[in-house]
Computed example of a mutant assay.
Amino acid sequence: MFNYLKIMEKNKLILICSDENEPSTDIVCSWLNYHNKKFLRISEKNLITIKKIIIENKNVDIIFDIDDFEYKLSELKSYWYRRSQLKFQNPNFIKILNKTEQALDEKINVFLNKEFHKTIEFFEYELNKLAVLNKFDDNYINKLKVLSIAKDLGIKISNTYIVNDFDSIDFKDSYITKAISDLVIFHENTNYYSMTQRVSFEDGENINNTLIQKEVKKKFEIRSFFFANTFYSSAIFSQENEKTSLDFRNYDFENPNRVVPYKLPIGLETKLKELCNLIDLKSGSLDLVYTTENEYLLFEINPVGQFEQVSFPCNYNLHKKIAEIL
């Protein structure tokens, strides 16, 4: 894991927030090292203490510690949120000394907690101004809202429903289900992810707030990584393998899908850029398909999705490009 690079006074510091074991970040840090760029990589295990905020007519700055080392926001060149989250030192709350004043002390502590979170909110607001790629709030982008905005922009989507039963669904057609939000669970040294699954009428007996979509007949899938106002796309021939035909993420490591570079139509890219702009997204992975009816459909956008499966097979060198713009 990369943490610190030797000091080069002429360069400002690049701040990176990522999981400790995140391969894409490791590779980007290798390229930063190669380019002699000074950076600091942190995760939720590193403690941030906000020491002072300065808001003047001609200057805004924040002085803060990370694990007892002092930094200034003005010393940062850029910020890259990849994964994990920022962890802040909690303030000193009032200690309850007797039962008589307990109710008042609790109310004061609620107020102090609000003050603390407003301070954190401002810190992240100023830090996000330096974000050239993602920011933590991108995790909260609503997939249903994305589909609605895409529809308004004339981007074709798969018919989507949120239901509590299947009584109103015509199962003469084939339907699939997937998570509305991202499901990633780590339990007993095992990672669990949500995958796309086909559903039948019988599956609707015990469901609640479930997303289903009409299954689309695909010629191939498209994973496109968007950053620096550019789409780096790949065509994934998942239909040639029964294991991956419904969802290419159900990888067949013994017989991997053929993946080749792909160029989306200019008109579609223009609409997708507008969509990213409307949801305030500078970078993300887009999942699309090219149907048997020769149409492009957008499935979803993963704001902090993986990009290795686009970069490596298509020789896009995305890790190097990211390091260059940080």
Results as ranks from 00 to 15, higher is better:
Ala103His: 13
Asn3Glu: 11
Phe220Met: 00
Asp105Phe: 09
Gly267Tyr: 13
Ile162Thr: 05
His35Val: 06
Lys145Tyr: 04
Trp80Arg: 14
Ser285Arg: 04
Lys12Asp: 08
Gln102Phe: 14
Glu269Asp: 10
Asn113Leu: 15
Asn315Arg: 06
Phe201His: 05
Gln85Arg: 15
Asn98Ala: 05
Asn90Trp: 15
Leu264Ser: 00
Gly284Ser: 07
Lys45Arg: 14
Glu254Gln: 08
Val132Asp: 12
Phe123Trp: 10
Phe39Trp: 02
Thr119Tyr: 11
Ser148His: 07
Glu56Arg: 06
Lys45Pro: 10
Val184Thr: 10
Phe253Ser: 09
Tyr161Leu: 05
Glu240Arg: 12
Leu278Asn: 05
Ile176Leu: 00
Phe248Leu: 02
Ser233Phe: 11
Met8Trp: 00
Tyr161Pro: 01
Asn277Val: 03
Glu300Gly: 04
Glu126Gly: 00
Ile108Pro: 09
Phe93Ser: 02
Leu211Glu: 02
Lys114Asn: 15
Ile54Leu: 13
Ala235Ile: 03
Thr291Glu: 10
Ser18Cys: 12
Thr196Trp: 00
Lys271Tyr: 10
Ile94Asp: 10
Phe2Asn: 14
Asp152Arg: 06
Lys99Leu: 10
Gln102His: 15
Lys87Trp: 09
Leu281Trp: 02
Asn294Val: 06
Asn257Leu: 03
Leu86Ile: 04
Phe299Cys: 05
Glu106Trp: 12
Ile96Leu: 11
Ala179Asn: 03
Ile176Arg: 00
Lys99Thr: 12
Asn113Pro: 09
Leu5Phe: 06
Thr190Arg: 06
Ser158Glu: 07
Arg198Pro: 00
Phe93Cys: 11
Asp19His: 10
Glu124Ala: 14
Phe201Leu: 08
Ile50Gly: 04
Glu188Arg: 14
Val146His: 03
Leu275Lys: 05
Gln213Lys: 00
Ile108Trp: 03
Ala228Met: 13
Glu221Asp: 12
Ser234Asp: 07
Arg41His: 13
Val110Asp: 14
Asn277Thr: 14
Leu47Met: 14
Leu286Arg: 05
Phe201Pro: 00
Phe88Ile: 15
Asn229Pro: 09
Ile207Lys: 06
Asn209Met: 02
Ile27Tyr: 03
Asn98Tyr: 06
Phe307His: 06
Pro23Lys: 12
Glu9Cys: 02
Tyr79Phe: 15
Lys72Val: 12
Phe227His: 05
Phe116Arg: 13
Phe171Met: 00
Gly305Pro: 04
Leu264Arg: 07
Ile155Thr: 01
Lys45Ile: 09
Asn46Gln: 15
Lys52His: 13
Leu32Gly: 04
